[in-house]
């Protein structure tokens, strides 16, 4: 039994053909598998190791390098607040503090209902629209604590 959906597995198989080595598509593969599974569980690691023709150790070496990849479950909505300099200059620290209060969790925490997780992240490429945050892959820009509340409420109601 493969832990990911058949479509995803098929997608990997097809995409891997575009590269000269078996392991090349590893990083995207990990990210897409994580998107589907929530995190890179032991089974996921085993599956991907097999797919890429690598030892599980080697796959873990790669996972642990990339900050978006995780072996621990996150919330359904992963709130990533950028506090890097451009956002910092426009109030990101307060914004992050606000999120902590609102969600009742700290950096890398997960709410008890597993709906939200929070992370302070490095520059996400929204410097001219600071401060910014990403919830999963959606960008939210020119944020204020009030706007952030709306954003969180909107996800909560999804």
């Amino acid at each position: 039994m493969i832990p990911v959906s058949e479509q995803l597995d098929h997608f990997f198989t097809e995409k891997m053909k575009e590269y000269p080595t078996q392991r090349s598509f590893l990083v995207p593969m990990l990210l897409y598998a994580q998107d589907e599974l929530g995190c890179l569980s032991n089974q996921a690691v085993e599956y991907i190791a097999g797919k890429a023709g690598l030892s599980q150790l080697e796959v873990r070496n790669v996972i642990s390098y990339y900050s978006m990849l995780t072996t621990k479950p996150r919330g359904r909505f992963h709130v990533q607040v950028c506090t890097n300099i451009c956002c910092q200059l426009r109030g990101a620290e307060d914004l992050f503090e606000h999120c902590k209060q609102r969600l009742g969790i700290g950096h890398k925490g997960v709410t008890s209902d597993e709906q939200f997780s929070l992370e302070e992240v490095e520059c996400i490429g929204a410097c001219s629209w600071a401060p910014a945050a990403q919830v999963n892959y959606d960008f939210h820009e020119n944020l204020t604590p009030e706007k952030m509340d709306q954003v969180l409420d909107e996800y909560r109601s999804r």
């Binding site: 030892s55 150790l57 080697e58 873990r60 070496n61 642990s64 390098y65």
Partner: peptide, 18 residues
């Protein structure tokens, strides 16, 4: 044998067993 790897990055980098 390839039983040792490097994990994490930066100052958190660590040698890890398989």
């Amino acid at each position: 044998v390839w039983a040792l790897g490097v994990q994490n990055r930066g100052s958190a980098s660590i040698i890890a067993p398989n």
